[in-house]
């Protein structure tokens, strides 16, 4: 019985942290699906969100969840700027040049954070960070629950936006066939910019949501970038619903692996799954096999 409770506890914890991973993965997957850009800077924007919250909280005592109102537009603007300055010039360049450019952006962002804030781990303490609710024998962290609910709401909104709005339709058209989209009068460049802005805003939001729970250092972005890659590859690159499932799966695999196998290899379980999927099921665990040119 006790083992069962522990298992349920682990499963719940994994699903909750997986919700956050899903949100990171969705942004990366969206950017890849529309722009075919493998964004190495994705995780760095999470760190940007964390530091932004620290600043707002430190100067004005702004509650982390209120920071979202500032952070999301900030991330969107940052994304627009980077797309305009760098990525829009690389649309017809070979695929590894966008990878290298985003890697460069990642290095610039993380080292700039280092210069601004120093290398020590920082954290933000709010009273409710350690709050929990009990669900039968299982204890759940309140901030993670809020994060999970927020993830679902955001992803729902994103799916609605993509499927119902005119801009969303244009983004999907751009993703499917750029030339075709241009032929029917869609400004694909503008929609690339919109997409990258959205992707960046999503990752900054993740940073805001995570800072009450975790430490931040300037180097933390790389870890989140790797997690985002794992999530999107598990779910299928460019597949948003797949990214949600991939995130949950990664969270569960990590937590279960760490508790029942070797804890030190926590990060390795996801990477092994990542390699296996990349090699044997490149369309992702949930996607149908689609031949892409």
């Amino acid at each position: 019985m006790e083992a069962l409770v522990a298992f349920a506890q682990n499963l719940a914890g994994g699903l909750l942290i997986g919700g956050v991973y899903a949100l990171i993965g969705v942004g990366l997957s969206l950017v890849f699906g529309v722009m075919r850009v493998i964004n190495f800077a994705h995780g760095e924007f999470v760190a940007v969100g964390m530091y932004l919250t620290l600043l707002l909280y430190g100067y004005w005592g702004l509650d982390p969840y209120l920071c979202l109102l500032v952070a999301a537009p900030f991330g969107y603007g940052l994304g627009l700027l980077l797309e305009r300055l760098v990525l829009s010039r690389l649309i017809d360049a070979p695929p590894d040049s966008t990878l290298l450019a985003t890697l460069g952006i990642a290095l610039v962002v993380s080292n700039t954070l280092h210069l601004l804030f120093g290398g020590e781990p920082r954290s933000l303490y709010v009273g409710y960070a350690t709050a929990t609710v009990r669900l039968g024998p299982v204890t759940l962290s309140v901030p993670l629950l809020i994060a999970g609910a927020g993830t679902l709401a955001l992803i729902g909104a994103l799916v609605l936006f993509l499927s119902r709005s005119e801009a969303g339709r244009a983004i999907r058209a751009t993703a499917q066939n750029r030339v075709g989209a241009e032929l029917v009068g869609i400004d694909t460049l503008a929609h690339h910019r919109l997409t990258f802005g959205l992707g960046t805003a999503l990752s900054v939001v993740v940073g805001v949501v995570l800072i009450p729970l975790l430490f931040v250092t300037p180097a933390v972005g790389g870890t989140y970038t790797l997690k985002a890659f794992v999530v999107t590859v598990l779910g299928g690159l460019g597949n948003l619903a797949g990214a949600v499932a991939g995130g949950m799966l990664l969270g569960v695999v990590e937590v279960l692996g760490a508790s029942y196998l070797a804890a030190g290899y926590r990060d390795a379980y996801g990477l092994v799954a990542f390699l296996a999927v990349l090699l044997f099921r490149p369309q992702g665990l949930f996607g149908r096999a689609v031949r892409r040119v």
Binding site: A101, L103, G104, I105, L107, V109, S110, N111, T112
Partner: peptide
Amino acid sequence: FASANLLIYGLLIVLVVL
């Protein structure tokens, strides 16, 4: 730059790619 030593790599690679 002190310990932010990879900043140069980042700036240079972006310039080179562009």
